[in-house]
Amino acid sequence: MNWTKKIYQGPLALLSAVLLAASAWGLSAPPAQAAAAQAAVPACSTGDHGLLKGLQAEHAASGTAPLNFSDIQFLNADTGRAAGNGFMIGTSDGGCHFQEIYKGQWSFGQIDFPDNVHGWALASVKGTAAAYLIATADGGSTWKRLTDTATVFDRIDFKDNKQGFGYSLASTYYTKDGGRTWRLIPTPANTRSAEFTSASSGYAVVVAPGAGYRIMKTSDGGATWSLSLKSAFAYPESGRVYANGDQVYALLYGGSGMSQTSYSLYASSNKGKSWSRVIAQNTAGGGPAPGSGAAQLTTGPASGKPGNMQLVGSSAAFLSGFSPAAEKVAVGRTYNGGKKWTNLPAIPGYDGLISFTGVTEGWMAVRGQNASSLYATEDGGSTWKLKFAFKGTEQ
């Protein structure tokens, strides 16, 4: 089942939907049909077109918690999904129209689609805490639990419809059969996070108590590890590595307090051979940032807490940041591998999660005081346009 074909109703509208689906797969339509479809499709606006009202009404009748977005993922500028507690919606025309993909028992934590058909998710049954690894082969309409027991994974990353990685605090697992079986990848002692770009190549954030952080690197599937970066800090706790091709970023956390988190962001444009310190954010509540020496900036996006990061192409990177106390969400970016970093204007919100597919187009799921919303940008995060919002969300 191709969920991109369910957006419209009626003969011309159905033609429009089919053409949209064809466009998403890189196909083209005859000029006459394309013109008819263009005439039949309403002008692009918020993307709601009745879906929002229907979903909220059905959810309110069930007496459960308000609808909230928990994750968002776009495959390209046109095609993407957003999911939350018991639902998943999607678009195949850049957010001009959204449709319901899934509605049911699963409350999604993280979703991961390497293509428009195959997907995996970490999800729990509504009202319970245990998370399971579930999979879909029809774009998200139906889901199958892969194990009978709760998963140990905190995060998943599938490279294609067979190969993927599962991460917990200290361990990394690899699958080559779509998540049916997994093998443990050896990681260094005191690993707190890892990131693999292939079955052989990966990075690990390692804590050295009383000394600081170490970024370790492997090129033989974890059999051996070498030092890539050393960052001094008295009380190392956790961090995260993001990698794409030659680009590697290390986000290392200091302390947290007063709705603030201290952290340092390091960038490498040569697979970890050398690093530069991009952000070193000290805060009153979290104390000093890890590491020492000069940094480009002393504050990150929104100057509160760092969010998730997206690496695009060979040199572009985007980092979300949010300040719950100031009710601001923002994005920082670089277009040259971290040599110049810019923090962009903020929008209202308590926290945000980004999904960028190019240097200009991106999406952000934002939780506000009374709404959970989707925003889109066409200028690399400098400005954002509201596309979809659930009102009356939980705090």
Rank of each mutant, 00 (worst) to 15 (best):
Ala21Gln: 01
Ala22Leu: 01
Trp25Tyr: 10
Trp25His: 08
Trp25Cys: 02
Trp25Met: 08
Leu27Met: 14
Leu27Asn: 15
Ser28Pro: 08
Pro30Cys: 07
Pro31Cys: 07
Ala32Tyr: 05
Ala32Glu: 12
Gln33Gly: 10
Gln33Tyr: 02
Gln33Ala: 10
Ala34Thr: 03
Ala35Cys: 00
Ala36Arg: 06
Ala36Tyr: 01
Ala37Tyr: 02
Ala37Lys: 02
Gln38Ala: 15
Ala40His: 04
Ala40Ile: 03
Ala40Gly: 05
Val41Ile: 14
Val41Asp: 01
Val41Leu: 04
Pro42Val: 06
Pro42Asn: 06
Ala43Thr: 12
Cys44Met: 04
Ser45Met: 09
Gly47Arg: 01
Gly47Met: 01
Gly47Glu: 02
His49Tyr: 12
Gly50Lys: 08
Gly50Arg: 08
Leu51Thr: 09
Leu52Gln: 13
Leu52Tyr: 05
Leu52Gly: 07
Lys53Arg: 15
Lys53Trp: 10
Lys53His: 13
Lys53Ile: 09
Gly54Cys: 04
Gly54Pro: 03
Gln56Pro: 06
Gln56Met: 15
His59Gly: 01
Ala61Phe: 04
Gly63Glu: 08
Leu67Trp: 12
Phe69Ala: 11
Ile72Val: 15
Ile72Gly: 02
Gln73Thr: 02
Gln73His: 01
Phe74Gly: 04
Asn76Phe: 13
Asn76Tyr: 09
Asn76Leu: 10
Gly80Cys: 06
Gly80Ser: 07
Arg81Cys: 07
Ala82Ser: 07
Ala82Thr: 02
Gly84Val: 07
Asn85Val: 13
Asn85Met: 15
Gly86Val: 09
Phe87Leu: 10
Phe87Ile: 11
Phe87His: 08
Met88Val: 12
Gly90Met: 04
Thr91Asn: 06
Asp93Met: 06
Gly94Arg: 03
Gly94Met: 05
Gly95Gln: 03
Cys96Ala: 13
Cys96Asn: 12
His97Ser: 15
Phe98Ser: 10
Gln99Tyr: 07
Gln99His: 07
Gln99Trp: 07
Glu100Asn: 11
Tyr102Asp: 04
Lys103Thr: 14
Lys103Asn: 14
Gly104Leu: 14
Gly104Ala: 14
Gly104Gln: 14
Trp106Pro: 05
Ser107Asp: 11
Ser107Thr: 11
Ser107Gly: 13
Phe108Gln: 10
Gln110His: 09
Ile111Ser: 02
Asp112Lys: 00
Asp112Gly: 05
Phe113Thr: 00
Phe113Lys: 00
Phe113Trp: 02
Val117His: 05
